[in-house]
Amino acid sequence: MEAGKQVTAWYCQTRDMTVLIAGCGDLGTEAGLRFAAAGHQVVGLRRSPEKLPPEIHGVYADLSKGVPQLPADVDIVVVAVAADSSTEEAYRAAYLNGVKNVLDALERQSLEPRRILFVSSTAVYKDSGGAVVDESTPTEPTRFSGKILVEAEDLLFARTHGTATRPISLRLGGIYGPGRTRLIDQVRTGKAVIPAQPRHTNRVHRDDAAAMIVHLTTMEQVPDPVYVGVDDYPAEMGEVMQFLAAGMGCPEPPTAEPGGASDAGPGDKRCSNALLRASGFDFAFPTFEEGYRALLDGQGVRHP
């Protein structure tokens, strides 16, 4: 079969598929609603399935412990888990065990979905000193969170190698959006402090992150194995804080003394979304300005 006809065949098959979202929290629910709006059947696994909207068929699952019987016709799997706390144990239970248990369930039922997307993070990259980071940058995390995410990615790629399933790791930057207002609250209450040393912040609005999930799992062309999911502009943290202060009519946050606590953090890197853009993805919120302006205007709802 010619390559062009293969693409057409895949595109036709994406019109009405069964999508499994393992870890159907705020991000997973938003993605699920978008899949459903496109005409797909969506099943969401989570510990409180009764909270899911009617467009998503909720099923109880504690992904850190196991996965129940899956739909026999599942075409797309999205693993969008989140740790219960910022501890190594919680990260390992959520991300590594979550991926393993999903893969075990698929293997147990001899299922090979067309695509599996794992929601990872730019935490897999180390401090680059402000240099540009992309999919070709080696994953050399220095913190346990990034190391565990790399383990989960490696497990996904190893277990799907040689199968009909196409694995995708979507490395998201810091997600903000409805209900994710920590930085806004810090600026509003006067607790925000601009780092003494310039530090870039790689962000993505929740809605764009959900749209990326749908785009990469249903697009016509065969996806690459890894995508960096950030917006177009890796702004300095101080710039974001100043924008928020001006938008809320609050005093501008002070700048910290060099070497203070505000300079301790995940380091400085500028993540590039060039590969994602090249795949045909368009942002609703291409920079933090559009995204935070929408939040300040009260747009959007966080899913329970």
Rank of each mutant, 00 (worst) to 15 (best):
A61T: 02
V19W: 08
G23W: 00
A82I: 10
A80M: 02
D75Y: 01
D26A: 09
L70I: 05
G66W: 03
P71V: 03
T29P: 09
A80W: 00
I56D: 05
I76Q: 13
P53I: 09
A37E: 15
L63F: 01
Q69Y: 00
A37D: 14
D75V: 04
V42E: 07
V81L: 01
V19N: 07
G44V: 10
I76E: 08
A61K: 03
V43T: 14
V19C: 09
V67K: 04
R46I: 02
I21R: 03
L45G: 06
A22N: 02
G66P: 03
A83E: 08
E30A: 15
A83P: 10
V67P: 04
I56L: 10
L27W: 05
V81F: 01
V19M: 05
D62T: 00
Y60L: 05
V74W: 03
M17H: 01
S64A: 14
G39H: 10
R34C: 07
T18C: 10
S48Y: 09
L63Y: 00
G28T: 06
E50S: 13
P49T: 09
A38L: 12
G44L: 10
Y60Q: 06
S85G: 15
V19A: 06
H57L: 07
A31E: 03
V43W: 13
R34N: 11
V19D: 06
K65I: 05
A82K: 12
V77I: 03
A72L: 15
T18Y: 06
P54M: 03
D62K: 00
P71N: 04
P68R: 12
V67G: 01
G23H: 01
A72W: 12
V67T: 15
C24E: 14
S85K: 15
V43R: 11
G66D: 04
K65Y: 07
K51N: 09
P49D: 07
S64Q: 05
Y60F: 15
I76G: 06
E55A: 15
V78E: 02
I76N: 12
V67Y: 02
E50T: 12
V43H: 14
S85C: 14
H40A: 05
L33D: 08
G32R: 03
P53L: 10
V19L: 04
L63V: 01
I21Y: 05
L52I: 11
S48H: 15
L33M: 15
L63G: 00
G32S: 12
A36L: 10
I56G: 08
G58Q: 03
E55G: 12
L52E: 10
S48I: 08
G28R: 12
A72M: 14
H40P: 06
D75L: 02
A31L: 09
V59R: 14
R47Q: 12
R46A: 06
V19T: 08
L52R: 09
V81T: 04
V81H: 00
